[in-house]
């Protein structure tokens, strides 16, 4: 990891900068016909102003569910919230009336998703879908709105932006569609962009372009980004601070370079070791054995115990507490790597 130079500025810790978004002890779950189960357990994380924070973990660990809950985009029922707060700019989003929440979505918080191919409505033109955001949150005349949309499309590196407004999603490639999603999410100049696996469905070359674009736009627009990903490469590329989630819990949080140099939680270490590296010639990639326990059969102790190489009897019986190492790192493990 030669490019992972220590950054001189270490204000990255969540307790050093004023948080824009903070989840505080969020516990929620779903009610189904077979009974209810807890999906997120005491999840807390913070996104400071103007920074990029990563949320990492395998599929099904609750990354997306945590932001969907924060944005109140999960239908309830089946979703329910047991406890916790989602504080955005001093207000608890979970307590807002639906109408106030609607004015935050797309306006102060923009979102982009993993599936650029299906995230745009196939029956409306790009222009309609972009203008709609401005119609809801700003009262602009059609001509002004069109100009703003063209500008934003140009900013995301899309050629012939005025023509794109007349096109339909099925006429565009996945990379273009994701750029349009980004442009649409940024139209109102949000304070926070939630990027839910923004590059997972794209070609590797397009992935790099999109990440680069997000970086530029962040500096341009002075916004915060919450980057959800299972790809540690994306974290290394763009995040300053990282939260690692496993089976509905945050298990480690640390500065990005610390995560790679001294991962504390065995799960984090497992994730890092299972990345392919060209320098080492190995026939097989390292994997973490086993699977994430489903929300309906989590063990009494540490959720990772079954798959952990450092598991002890205590791990099986008691849930580990979150231990703050210093302002740069905290780990929820009975037996962390030193």
């Amino acid at each position: 990891m030669a490019e992972q130079k220590a950054r001189p500025d270490s204000r990255a810790g969540p307790d050093n900068a004023e948080p824009l978004l903070s989840l505080k002890g969020l516990t929620m779950g779903f009610r189904t016909d077979e009974g209810s189960f807890i999906a997120l357990e005491d999840v807390s994380y913070e996104v400071p102003k103007g920074q990029t924070v990563g949320l990492v973990g395998e599929s099904g660990c609750g990354k997306s569910v945590s932001v969907m809950t924060a944005m109140r985009l999960l239908p309830s029922p089946p979703a329910f919230i047991r406890s916790g707060q989602v504080v955005f700019d001093g207000r608890d989003l979970l307590k807002l009336v639906p109408e106030s929440m609607r004015h935050i979505r797309g306006n102060r918080i923009g979102m982009i998703f993993q599936e650029p191919m299906t995230s745009l409505n196939p029956t409306f033109s790009i222009g309609f879908q972009m203008r709609e955001v401005l119609r809801i949150h700003r009262s602009l005349k059609r001509k002004e709105a069109d100009e703003l949309c063209t500008d934003m499309l140009a900013k995301t590196g899309i050629g012939a932006p005025a023509q794109r407004l007349k096109q339909y999603p099925h006429e565009l490639s996945g990379g273009l569609r994701q750029r349009i999603m980004i442009a649409m999410a940024l139209l109102c100049g949000p304070d926070l962009l939630i990027a839910d696996e923004p590059t997972t469905a794209l070609d590797v070359t397009i992935q790099a372009q999109i990440l680069e674009l997000l970086k530029e736009l962040q500096q341009d627009l002075q916004m915060s980004i919450l980057m959800i990903t299972h790809d540690l490469g994306v974290v290394a590329e763009s995040c300053r601070y990282v939260y690692v989630m496993y089976a509905g819990c945050v298990v480690e949080s640390a500065e990005a370079e610390r995560i790679f140099s001294e991962p504390g939680h065995p799960y984090t270490r497992g994730l890092i070791n299972s990345r392919p590296r060209i320098a080492e010639k190995r026939e097989w990639l390292k994997t973490i054995p086993g699977m994430v326990p489903g929300p309906d059969n989590r063990p009494p102790g540490c959720n990772y115990a079954e798959r952990c190489e450092r598991c002890t009897e205590q791990c099986r019986q008691e849930q580990p507490q979150f231990v703050q190492y210093d302002h740069k790192q905290a780990v929820a493990c009975w037996n962390p790597y030193p």
């Binding site: 944005m71 985009l73 639906p98 609607r102 004015h103 935050i104 979505r105 797309g106 306006n107 923009g110 979102m111 998703f113 599936e115 299906t118 995230s119 745009l120 409505n121 196939p122 409306f124 709609e132 955001v133 809801i136 949150h137 999603m181 649409m184 999410a185």
Partner: peptide
């Protein structure tokens, strides 16, 4: 249940318009 409905909601579209328009 489609992704573009989630997008519409994330844009702040009124729920009635999410259903009746999108």
């Amino acid at each position: 249940q489609q992704d573009y409905i989630r997008t519409a909601r994330a844009k702040g579209v009124r729920e009635s318009a999410v259903v009746l328009v999108h």
